[in-house]
Design a protein around this nucleic acid. Structure first.
Length: 423
DNA sequence: TCTGGGGTCCTAGGACCC
DNA sequence: TCTGGGGTCCTAGGACCC
């Protein structure tokens, strides 16, 4: 039996979330900005039509924005994550085998599900729209790569009414459709590979699909070879039903204003190390290394400086206090006065499951059970009372370096005082 | 003045070993 | 004349994704 993998993707996810809670945005051009309100990370249809590009710096768009009344929102990731959970839960009701691929995309295995797949997909669309207010498109194909491509078609071509099932097409119809799509649209073919493919005469998806896997492997890599096989219906990328644990955890931000003093950098790193430790505990892991970095702005004419330091921890840990202490020690090693710093960050590496690993030779219990209890209490309080209720003092209180979010929407679903109550 | 943040996989090349 | 060869591990960098 032909496999039927569906890819469900929310249209303009961040911008759509903003619109759900603020109907005034309906029909107006809307963009969502990155941290520090730096650049555009999401646009709705109206702003796309005005020529706003993904990743465009916001300050360069001020004129266009004034002229056309573009509405900008700071990114509100707590809101988007909550809306994502709701969408994913609804999708999971339609088939037992689901992979949550990203914050706004999910694969679902429809193979063998009774009924017409396009009809199932349409029911899914209307239920998600009715229950969350978010529009989605659905692509269906025998492999993940083809499902992604089908989703692209469903989004771009109105005649498909939001659902494209490649399994319903005859071989010649499929060939004609794929011949009309540029090769760069394929999942896994990015801005570097596309020109190289064009250079050897491969322009459309169909052109790539007709190559032999061996030739493509020899010219490129196994990754592109797998893409060719997937385009031919041979599954090389399996559904991942359980999200694997992260092998690396990064927390980094640009500062809201230029920072020159070590104290501010240490405060920021204390906060980031705390966040990283939380993420680590959430997946029940310990890290054996921590890397700290700081750098100046590479885009302006400021004197440049960029440094990082990796420290091997005496024993793998998930303890906030210990990670913060090491991060701040490392920061003091690499900090140089006289620079205007732009960004700092913390990375945790050599991540392994908690429990079972060796403790350091001299640490014996290394305060292990005491630390575990303290961290559990910390997480519990913050879960119940709000994110930053309990935190280490070295994060500072005033935080002039913190990111700018001048157009932040409310925590409509995640913050009690801001929750909307229908009467 | 103003240009995000967080991930994965693969490959090539060097070090080192026998 | 002729100066081994193969395996493993690690790291940096490149490519991609959202």
């Amino acid at each position: 039996m032909t496999r039927a993998i569906a890819l469900i993707d929310v249209n303009n996810f961040y911008a759509s979330c903003e619109r759900v809670f603020d109907p005034k945005l309906e029909g107006k051009p809307v963009v969502v900005l990155s941290n520090n309100d730096g650049c555009v990370i999401a646009r709705n249809k109206e702003s796309r039509e005005l020529g706003v590009k993904m990743g465009a710096p916001w300050h360069e768009l001020k004129g266009l924005a004034r002229q056309h009344g573009i509405i900008a929102r700071s990114s509100n990731f707590a809101l988007y994550a909550d809306m994502s959970d709701r969408v994913m839960t609804i999708i999971s009701q339609f088939a037992p085998t689901q992979e949550v691929y990203s914050i706004d995309e999910s694969f679902l295995d429809l193979t063998g599900m009774p009924g017409q797949h396009t009809a199932i997909a349409q029911r899914m669309r209307s239920r998600i729209l009715q229950w969350t207010g978010l529009p989605v498109c659905v692509g269906i194909g025998p492999t993940k790569t083809l499902a992604k491509l089908a989703n692209h078609v469903a989004k771009k071509r109105p005649e498909y009414a939001g659902v494209c099932d490649l399994n319903q097409l005859s071989s010649s119809e499929l060939g004609a459709l794929l011949a009309s799509i540029e090769v760069g649209e394929v999942w896994g073919i990015g801005p570097r590979l596309a020109p190289r493919l064009n250079h050897i005469g491969i322009h459309s998806v169909q052109d790539l699909r007709c190559q032999t896997p061996e030739y493509i492997r020899q010219q490129f890599s196994v990754v592109v070879e797998k893409t060719v096989r997937e385009l031919n219906g041979q599954a090389c990328i399996e559904l991942e039903l359980i999200a694997p644990n992260k092998q690396q955890i990064v927390v980094s931000r640009s500062f809201g204003q230029k920072v020159t003093d070590l104290d501010s950098i240490c405060q920021s790193l204390s906060l980031y190390a705390s966040r990283a430790a939380e993420k680590l505990r959430k997946q029940k892991s310990h890290a054996a290394t921590i890397t700290v970095f700081m750098r100046t702005n590479p885009f302006n004419d400021d004197p440049r400086y960029s440094a990082h330091k990796t420290v091997a921890l005496p024993a793998p840990t998930d303890d906030t206090l210990q990670l913060v202490r090491v991060a701040m020690w490392a920061a003091r090693q690499i900090y140089k006065p006289g620079y205007r710093y732009h960004k700092s960050g913390v990375m945790l590496g050599e991540i392994m499951p908690a429990g079972g690993q060796q403790t350091d030779l001299f640490g014996f219990q290394d305060g292990g059970s005491k630390s575990a209890k303290l961290m559990a209490a910390l997480d519990q309080v913050n879960r119940k009372m709000g994110k930053h209720t309990l935190r280490v003092a070295s994060q500072g209180y005033r935080r002039p370096w913190a990111m700018r979010q001048n157009n932040l929407s409310a925590g409509y679903t995640t913050n009690w005082p801001e929750i909307i109550i229908c009467s």
